[in-house]
């Protein structure tokens, strides 16, 4: 089982209310690899991520975690599989009624038989890892944005998953804190051998941490390669993305007029 890749995405098609937003996506990630998923606004990154972490049934295709299908199985088997991954949500999504320490301890309390003392030691270790030791007893509402993201990371890695997902870890943070988070992600890989999937807008951060960059465009994976390869790519849409050139949609005067009229 450990020889299985942490995640394989097979011909994934997904979307909302029967309308596909993600089209025929294939992706595989190796153990200890950091993959950054990039793409313009509305390209489908968040939707793709929801499919990867078991929150959304695909319309077609499948996602395999550690060789086991996430969706061709019962809901409780799926939940068992999900215990093997960690997810740090964009806004943290910490339990607002619990302290930071209780949040980090939650997966340990729910999924292990460890005694209370050990749980507290592990919790402090994880909080220390993200530099939040001493904030144990604060509520999520008492943390800053950057602290929230780090607390979310601490909870995500509480059970030492082999695969962790992070949604926009550095969005909205000041450059120093953002850089610290990047270092944290690299540390997860180097000292714990973790695979990390990061969704981000930040180019600089992507180039710094990524072993591989996957570019989503209008729901299609149009590129997958190393940071060097992406810089050399001659695809104009990719160049536009990494040079921050605004998309030039073909201008359809009639459609535009209709949209303005609200039709």
């Amino acid at each position: 089982m450990s020889s299985q890749p942490p995640i394989i995405v097979e011909n994934l098609q997904g979307g909302y209310n029967g309308i596909p937003v993600i089209h025929g996506c294939n992706m595989e990630i190796a153990q200890g690899e950091i993959v950054v998923i990039m793409g313009g606004s509305g390209s489908g990154k968040s939707t793709f991520l929801k499919h990867l972490i078991g929150l959304k049934e695909p319309m077609q295709g499948d996602v395999k975690l550690f060789g086991q299908s996430l969706y061709q199985t019962s809901i409780y088997k799926r939940m068992d599989l999900l215990k093997g991954i960690g997810v740090a949500f964009q806004s943290g999504a910490l339990m607002s009624s619990m302290t930071i320490a209780e949040n980090v301890a939650l997966p340990l309390r729910e999924h292990t038989d460890l005694d209370e003392e050990l749980i507290q030691v592990i919790t402090r270790m994880k909080l220390d890892f993200v530099n939040l030791l001493g904030k144990d007893d604060l509520l999520p509402s008492e943390l800053s944005g950057g602290m929230l993201k780090r607390a979310a990371v601490a909870r995500a890695i509480a059970l030492d998953p082999k695969l962790t997902f992070m949604d926009e870890p550095s969005a909205g943070l000041d450059p120093v804190i953002a850089a610290a988070l990047d270092d944290l992600i690299i540390q997860l890989k180097e000292s714990l051998g973790m695979s990390v999937v990061v969704v981000t807008h930040e180019l600089e951060s992507a180039f710094k941490i990524a072993d591989r960059i996957v570019v989503l465009d209008r729901g299609y994976i149009i590129f997958s390669g190393t940071p060097d390869e992406i810089k050399k790519s001659d695809n104009t849409r990719i160049q536009n993305l990494i040079n921050r050139v605004p998309e030039e949609e073909e201008f359809d005067a009639e459609l535009y007029a209709q949209q303005l009229m609200g039709q």
Binding site: I53, G54, L55, I75, Y76, M79, D80, L81, L82, K83, I85, V87, F89, S91, G92, A93, L94, M95, S96, L106, P107, E110, H111, R155
Partner: peptide
């Protein structure tokens, strides 16, 4: 909890 993403977070942690 739903608005804050806590329900999704529980699901992803494998807690129904």
């Amino acid at each position: 909890m739903q608005l804050n993403g806590e329900i999704d977070a529980l699901t992803v942690m494998g807690i129904a």
